[in-house]
Amino acid sequence: MELENYKKTWKNQPEETNKVSKVDIYRMAHSKSSSVVKWIFIIGILELIFWTGLSFMVPDNYMDIYKEYNIMGFLKIYTLLHYVVIFLFLILFYKNYTSISITDSTKRLMNKILRVRKTVKYYVYYNLAGFVITNIIISVVFLSKPNTLAKVINPEGLNTDINSLLSGFLISTIAVVPIAFLILWLFYKVTYGKLLKKLNNNYKELDNLEALH
């Protein structure tokens, strides 16, 4: 049979049975939820790689102070637990990503968006709170043994007043931790915050669509 004859067959083919409505088209054209959720997962992984990489770059003698205080065991357990929690979050991110689908009903999609937001929020809270709490714990531990701290800060045993050494440590901790916290917070605001905002807009659009029905 000549190709030309297939044109008729082609032309006569039945129309698509699963016609898509205007509302569906609107939803498809606007809904980038799934790609936003994918990025949340990817950034989560990149963040993990970044922090892990950074921890390898810390010079060995940085750990001396922890050895001096005999808290290496505690730190190791804490790090392990931290990684477990992060992995659990990443699994949740991944599950969010795979479960979100454009063929969901509007209501279901909205519920999933809410779930994604919740997961990300808890993830950020966990990281920020973890940062503050560990810093407070470590500072308290350090200050609990002023002599050890003085030895570590001033290994050469220069003739300085121990009280001014300790207050110096306290002041610099109080100054540095909030700044570091702010940087961390800003980082989350720029990455996840931006993605969540996109999701939010999406949610609002879906909400408007629901109202149309």
Binding site: E16, K19, S21, K22, I25, Y26, A29
Partner: peptide, 10 residues
């Protein structure tokens, strides 16, 4: 856009 798309979706 929605009208055009719906009409030509085939």
């Amino acid at each position: 856009f929605l009208t055009d798309f719906e009409q030509h979706q085939n």
